[in-house]
Amino acid sequence: MAAIYSLFIVNKSGGLIFYKDYGSAGRMETNDSLRLASLWHSMHAISQQLSPTVGCNGIDLLQADTFDLHCFQSLTGTKFFVVCEPGAQHMEGLLKVIYELYTDYVLKNPFYEMEMPIRCELFDLNLSQAIQKDRVSLFGR
């Protein structure tokens, strides 16, 4: 049982720049993951329009029947979202950790072009470690 099903990183214009699956059922096609990412981008924007009060920053948490989706948007508009089991805790913390890894290993990589798909070995490595650690801590409880 995986606590986390998948991770998406979406750039500020809604393009998917990183997608990793951690054991969801069935195979997600590349095109579908791209579509879902841009769909989420627009849902996020529309949710701000519908806010009853000022200062809405878009959806943080979507609770579906079979999963929870936690989303974190950085100041520059890059969105990180994880799909996890319903009721999974500490996902905000994990998203912050992933953001930190992104700034350290992606943005500081001189060969990385902004808003382009992420292909950084160090990022992948540290990310899988972070997710692993998170899983271990989840199992430990």
Binding site: Q48, C56, D60, L62, Q63
Partner: peptide, 14 residues
């Protein structure tokens, strides 16, 4: 299919 029952932003919950 799978539906959803709520989502939350910093200013409201739907």
């Amino acid at each position: 299919g799978c539906s959803f029952h709520s989502f939350r932003t910093n200013t409201y919950k739907l």
